[in-house]
Design a protein around this nucleic acid. Sequence first.
DNA 1: TATATTATGATTGGTTGTGACTGATAATAA
DNA 2: TTATTATCAGTCACAACCAATCATAATATA
Lengths: 249, 249
Amino acid sequence: MLTEERQKFILDTLNKKGIVKVNELVKTTDASESTIRRDLTHLEDLNKLKRVHGGATLLEGRYNEASFKDKLIHKQEEKVAIAKHAASLIEDGDSIYLDAGTTIYEMTQFINQKDIFVVTNGIDNVEPLLEKGINVYILGGKIKSKTKAVTGVDAITNLSKFRFDKAFLGMNAIHLEYDLTTPDTEEAKMKEKAIDLSGESFVLVDDSKFNKVSFVKVADLDRVTVITNKENRHYEEYLQKTDIEVGTE
Amino acid sequence: MLTEERQKFILDTLNKKGIVKVNELVKTTDASESTIRRDLTHLEDLNKLKRVHGGATLLEGRYNEASFKDKLIHKQEEKVAIAKHAASLIEDGDSIYLDAGTTIYEMTQFINQKDIFVVTNGIDNVEPLLEKGINVYILGGKIKSKTKAVTGVDAITNLSKFRFDKAFLGMNAIHLEYDLTTPDTEEAKMKEKAIDLSGESFVLVDDSKFNKVSFVKVADLDRVTVITNKENRHYEEYLQKTDIEVGTE
DNA sequence: TATATTATGATTGGTTGTGACTGATAATAA
DNA sequence: TTATTATCAGTCACAACCAATCATAATATA
């Protein structure tokens, strides 16, 4: 049985039964325990299942929502690696700003600190955080239908009264000369304000966003720490302008 | 049976029966008494159940609202009838307030007017409305994890600047003498404020909520129009105190 | 062809879950 | 009240499970 084939089989079985056991998989797939374990670990990294002692279960809350599946496929693996690394930076007691957007949304799955306070403008971030028992504050304002982000004057006003330890932001483009840019004016303002209000700011971008320019400037590169998934070809040059952290699973 | 599997089984059984006994679980799960006991202790730590001598019970008192998903199933058909009728009252050009809660959530799928402006404190209401191309404004503030409602001082402040044509509210109890009541102080304030700000206010309640009293008073009966699913036994008396509309699919 | 890269199964020592047992505590009956 | 029984939390040794490592086999790349 091929690796991919076996992993697909595991997911299929899981979807049918809701839970799989290492023992049973060893018998049914005729692979060794080590291999099954590796498969499960890998699939967990991809956020496809949850490992438990003796096997794995379905992720709760996530699998049923059909509409999300599509968006999350693009650069899924990279986003997960980045999100995981970003989430690991959160410490107990932190007050955090979470931007809207799919990469940041991935982060919510990996946040383990409960004693934190999260402010967000992303509707989709709310539920997974609440499920983890985390305090969530949603910014008030008009909601953009495309990104499900809260933006506008009210959102900025609402945001302004907070001070954050750390802000985590998505971004559409990052460039050595034109810095951080995004297509929407309103969202750009939100991001900029969040950077202003935060002790440290992290921008999460996969490697496809590098050396691109979008419409509205958000901030200079040196005001943030960039988190990405691999060292791209201009890595050294970027390092001279900003901090870069690489999440590698 | 894996640990997680067994614990899920315990919770499922508990939700079905309302109470579980250590003895019975030992037989049905084929685990030892020690293990079952450990499971129950663990689940109690997670606030999933309450341990009692000989087993465990659900933790649902008077101030303890059933979780969102459970509520969705409860009285589903009645809720749809009510929601449908309520949605039919919305007219083009209206500015609307939608409360959080499952009954109001049902409304969202029956709203056909696009040229309206909706303000809501219910996270779950946002997505279906956006999908229909409706303008949505979410109130900012702390989110209650159980009901996914935005509440608190900020939410009230945020709410106060609006004026609505119509407000649609859920309610936990309705009573001839004690009027409209709900278990949560913060949510009660939100509902009251919404009534203050709205030309007309509608309270959506299925027949099981009649002649009951909850903890915090929201408003007098005569300030709202009640929408319910059937004429209950005190119908005539209620009619003298308030307007009632009956949604019958 | 030679040389990386990746996937695999076996082995290790450490961790977690388990069942049996204990004496203590709570419910129930006399 | 006291006696009896059921249930309890705590401890122990053992089994199941785990991540980490290694050598080997399969596959890809030069």
